Amino acid sequence: MGAVRGEEASASTELWARHRPLCPPVGHELRGPYRDAWVRFHSLPGSKRYAEDEADAAERDRMRGRHAEWLPAHPSGL
C-alpha cells in the first residue's frame, strides 16, 4: 500500500485542516499545539515503529487499510 493520492488525499487534508488547523498531520509536530490530545500507537508486533521483515510489512499494510476505512467513517475522531 502506497501513499494516499487524489481525492482521498484531498478529502483527508481538508478534514485535517478543519479539525486541527495549528499544524500538519506530522507526529512529532502534534506534540506542541496538541499535547493534551497527542498519542502514538505502536501497531506493529513488539511495539516496533518500522517494519523489519515481510511479516511486519504485511501487518503495516493491513493497519493502513483499516485506518483508511475508519477515518472517513469517524471524522469527529480527529
Rank of each mutant, 00 (worst) to 15 (best):
E54V: 08
E52P: 12
E52K: 15
P45Y: 03
L22A: 08
W38Y: 08
S47Y: 12
L15A: 06
P24L: 05
A37C: 11
S43H: 10
F41M: 13
P21K: 06
P33N: 06
K48V: 00
V26R: 00
S10C: 06
W38T: 08
A55W: 08
Y50N: 10
A37F: 09
E29T: 04
E14K: 07
E54H: 07
P45W: 12
A17Y: 05
A11F: 12
W16V: 00
P33Q: 07
E29Q: 11
P25A: 06
P25H: 03
F41H: 13
G46L: 12
L44G: 08
P33K: 01
D53M: 02
L30I: 04
R35M: 02
R18W: 05
H19K: 10
P33Y: 03
H19I: 01
G46T: 05
A17E: 12
H42L: 00
Y34H: 01
A11H: 13
W16M: 04
R20N: 03
L44E: 02
S43F: 08
L15G: 02
P33I: 00
L44W: 00
R40W: 09
E52L: 14
Y50Q: 12
W16S: 01
E14C: 13
A11I: 05
S43P: 10
P33A: 08
L22D: 14
E54D: 12
H28I: 13
H28W: 07
P21N: 01
P45V: 01
R49L: 09
D53A: 05
D53Q: 01
S43N: 14
Y50L: 09
A11L: 13
L22T: 10
A11V: 13
E52S: 11
F41G: 14
P25K: 01
L30V: 01
L15H: 03
R40V: 13
R31T: 09
H42T: 14
E52M: 14
W16E: 03
H28E: 15
D36I: 10
G27Q: 07
K48S: 00
K48R: 04
Y50I: 11
A55K: 15
P24M: 07
Y34D: 04
E54W: 12
A37V: 11
R31G: 07
E54M: 15
A55V: 09
L44A: 04
P33E: 03
L22P: 11
R31M: 07
P21I: 00
D36R: 08
G27W: 05
L15Q: 02
R20D: 03
T13H: 09
D53E: 03
R40T: 15
R20E: 06
W38H: 15
W16K: 00
T13I: 14
S47N: 04
V26M: 03
E14H: 11
R40E: 02
Y34R: 04
L44F: 00
P33S: 05
E29F: 06
G32Y: 04
W38S: 03
P24C: 02
F41Q: 12
S12Q: 15
R20L: 02
P25N: 04
W38C: 11
S10Q: 10
P21R: 06
H19E: 07
V39F: 06
S12D: 09
L30F: 00
V26L: 12
R31Y: 10
V39E: 15
H19Q: 11
A51R: 00
R35L: 02
P21D: 03
L44R: 07
